[in-house]
């Protein structure tokens, strides 16, 4: 059981990565970005395609940068044109999610593929437990990225402007900032974080072009359980979700993700302010 709990925490690290970008995006722009999961999977497939030609460490550095550019352009030339009523960017992102999924299927076929390396099956012995190296690294990366994002938001000029934009996008112009650029930058960061999560997923297992929807669901649960834009609460929520999934897979394998969904329902009933306002 100890090993199940440990694996649940490690799974939570992966969930946290999926939730981080979505929570950031919703926290600043109040837009439910429905293509988040598919863009994460696109990041995984981009890494797969590039890893045939480039060393893995180059791929791991390059794909998030490309994803940042994609997110930046997406906000600047697509989503920013329909901002205002939150429904419209949400519908555009839904359309985008379908397009990304179809493109991935056309380009890579419907089969499952994984980003296999020597490290994929490596295990680390820790206090009598045998834990996978990739899941451990994923949890470490999640902690690092949450800390970095928090530091950016609370201890940098850019972060102050991002938080001010989240509160009142029109008023930041009075301080020389361009809210449109801020939104593009945040969306770039959000999609880059999605790509990192997608790569982490492909490193520990296999992905198909259709995996985005399930990943979006995980990301939403993480973001909602902690409260959109509240990073450390999101992180705790992700660990809780990972623990529940790991324990329920072991005790009640037929139930799938049911108990995770029940956690979400319980949180919404007990603490509705944690839900998006």
């Amino acid at each position: 059981m100890t090993e199940t709990l440990a694996n649940g925490l490690l799974l939570g690290g992966l969930y946290a990565l999926f939730g981080l970008g979505l929570s950031l995006c919703f926290g600043v722009m109040r837009v439910a970005q429905l293509a988040h999961g598919d863009l994460a999977i696109a990041g995984a497939f981009a890494a797969l395609a590039l890893s045939d030609h480039l060393p893995l460490w180059v791929v791991l550095a390059l794909v998030p940068v490309l994803a940042f550019g994609l997110g930046w352009a997406l906000q600047r030339w697509l989503l920013d044109r329909v901002m205002g009523d939150p429904m419209r960017p949400m519908l555009v992102s839904f359309g985008l999610s379908v397009v990304v999924q179809t493109l991935l299927e056309q380009a890579f076929g419907p089969g499952a593929r994984g980003l296999q390396t020597q490290a994929s099956t490596a295990a680390v012995s820790l206090g009598g437990l045998s834990l996978g190296l990739v899941p451990l690294a994923t949890l470490g990366l999640a902690v690092g990225l949450f800390a970095a994002t928090w530091g950016l938001l609370h201890h940098s000029d850019r972060g102050r402007v991002i938080r001010a934009t989240a509160e009142n996008a029109r008023a930041v112009a009075l301080f020389g900032a361009d809210a449109g650029r801020v939104r593009s930058w945040v969306m770039g960061l959000s999609v880059a974080l999605a790509a990192v999560a997608g790569i982490a997923l492909a490193l520990r297992g296999a992905v198909t072009p259709f995996a985005g929807g399930e990943r979006l669901l995980i990301a939403f649960q993480v973001a909602v359980i902690g409260g959109m834009g509240r990073l450390w609460a999101n992180f705790a929520g992700a660990l809780a979700l990972g623990l529940i999934h790991a324990v329920s897979f072991r005790l009640d394998p037929g139930a799938g993700l049911l108990y995770g969904h029940l956690l979400l329902v319980a949180v919404l009933l007990l603490r509705p302010e944690g839900a998006p306002r």
């Binding site: 000029d157 102050r160 938080r163 001010a164 989240a166 509160e167 009142n168 008023a171 930041v172 301080f175």
Partner: peptide, 12 residues
């Protein structure tokens, strides 16, 4: 900006 601290408002 109510969600920022006093010092952060000044920094803007």
């Amino acid at each position: 900006f109510a969600t920022l601290t006093v010092a952060e408002n000044l920094a803007l």
